[in-house]
Design a protein around this nucleic acid. Sequence first.
DNA 1: ACCTGTGATGTTATCGCTATCATCAATAGG
DNA 2: CCTATTGATGATAGCGATAACATCACAGGT
Lengths: 349, 349
Amino acid sequence: MTKTADGKMGDGKTGEAPTMNDVARRAGVSAMTVSRALKEGSHVSKATRERITQAINELGYVLDQSAGSLSSRRTGFVAAIIPSINNSNFSDTARGITDALEGTGLQLLLGYTNYSVEREEELIEAMLRRRPEGIILTGGAHTPRGRRMLEQAGIPVIETWDTPADPIDKVVGFSNGAAMELLVETLAAKGYERFGYIGGTTARDTRGSQRRGGFVRALERLGLPSDRVISFGVPPISMEQGAQAVVSMLERWPDTQVALCVSDLSAFGALMECQRRGMKVPDDIAIAGFGDYEIAACCHPRMTTINVDCYGIGRQAALKLTQTIQGMATEEPERITLTDFRVVEREST
Amino acid sequence: MTKTADGKMGDGKTGEAPTMNDVARRAGVSAMTVSRALKEGSHVSKATRERITQAINELGYVLDQSAGSLSSRRTGFVAAIIPSINNSNFSDTARGITDALEGTGLQLLLGYTNYSVEREEELIEAMLRRRPEGIILTGGAHTPRGRRMLEQAGIPVIETWDTPADPIDKVVGFSNGAAMELLVETLAAKGYERFGYIGGTTARDTRGSQRRGGFVRALERLGLPSDRVISFGVPPISMEQGAQAVVSMLERWPDTQVALCVSDLSAFGALMECQRRGMKVPDDIAIAGFGDYEIAACCHPRMTTINVDCYGIGRQAALKLTQTIQGMATEEPERITLTDFRVVEREST
DNA sequence: ACCTGTGATGTTATCGCTATCATCAATAGG
DNA sequence: CCTATTGATGATAGCGATAACATCACAGGT
């Protein structure tokens, strides 16, 4: 591999990238000392450190962490897998993870599945090949092979956004079903009786089907009709699909008093569609969402929804991860952490 | 390193993770053959491959790619740095990248800066330490040190979402200023004369300030007043800030006919706020956004905006990257690719 | 002056994999 | 039947860093 004018960098130096040895030679020290100089809390004399820093700058050297992690057996990153980056609930969780990782020397490697467990399996494998020090997943539904890989990986695994019946390792989440039940109860207490539900078609979105389950359970318990369920579109369902779904719902059950939606996005679509048709919300029909996205607090009328501590889920998951990784002399963190949710009542109900 | 009961995995096997040598021993072949069996297009006999596959399954072996890439000098990933994952424009770009990478054996490592160039610099360094085979950035504004690192990295660098005056390497983007000019011209042609602009305060968001620049330029060219500019909040400005900004604007210049916003999100906030105050859009005031987010097509009234090919930016950036990486015997791809944008006229103007 | 502890550095041996070259058998071509 | 070609496999030598141990100099206590 002596080929050289191959890097094709616009300008700047040509040739192979400098290694730690190049730096060491230039600074007149051994590679080991360079390695130490690049690490916090190592004993390197001030003069030497300065020479090394200078050599690094002159050469434009950048540490090769992949080589380092092979040797130190620490890759310095954790993996997180979320359904979609294009959903602010999950990206809030990702922010929570990043923030909690700040200062731990760990970096986040993010992947997204588009709500597909098959894609999740691929991602799990791709991630594990890079030897993360821990992995955070969304939900408790995995392929059998994905699950097996996680169990055998020998790293802490955290499932989030859910309360799986049979967790792989640790969990930070809440019961989506219970949250929806609470919403139904809150609204029933206000006098609503004829509830409709708008969600996606398949069981692909496990959180979605749990929400639907909660909807049905709560109504049955209250002795109210629980059959007004519209399944529309492949999850995650969009604003536009929410709009279309509410139309179907009103055609089929014109006297529906309140439409609960699997997420704020579809709820928003429904809300706008109702206004477009000249219906008054909440007088003609009430609408509530799930997730407390930015849009729920800002639309007109402002929307009732379930607030979920998305950011906190990420933060706590990452915290639990770093605690486990660092061994935490004292004790292992709790296996299961339940996060808060609450009904946010606004003008749309 | 004989310590063993240390992995602390919930259940499953204990002990060190199996290596390729363990697999090789179990399958009765050499490690090299295992390595070949794990790679497409290598000559391994069917019988051997089966034995190896079986051994892999029995041991639960997962390839250690970080060791592999040290040896092969190919890490198999590309880095992308975006301002925010919580913004569907950029996450669409990320999707475009992922999709274009599909089947190339390259994986995406995503980082986000929260619109901070300092954070970008940190991320660039963190990424380069892992030796990506290429890197995709958002915008052309970097710290001097960040820029230097990119220039010296010896890998293809693609700046996107912008048309930097002095690109580092390759570019896939569009002129944010020109796009805003086009929007102003389109609306001026409909007869609007008193334009206002709502955006963030600082120059931190370079795309935002270019849009503002385009707004001013177009109005000056048309001989219309260009001073109705509200700067509100640190970019990226939220829906809520858009709502507050439009209030300031109407207090200061009550006869404003049309409010252009730095993004659909702030435009949406403004739109809702106007309705809350009983103003009719577009009769009392027209509103337009930028970005053509999902919300623009779905809100009521539907919003006029600039559609930008976010997904295409990602796709083309990744394509250009893989072409460069693979050498493309024939020729280097174009240095600069301009992507499309267009005005989408809807009911809000 | 002697011992000890500590800071600053170097040496050596991997980490787990793959590039490369070498080997040997089987197949094909003349 | 002999040589050239290809396929299947193995042996060896790193890739670029760091862990672990080894030195060596020097400060301080007695």
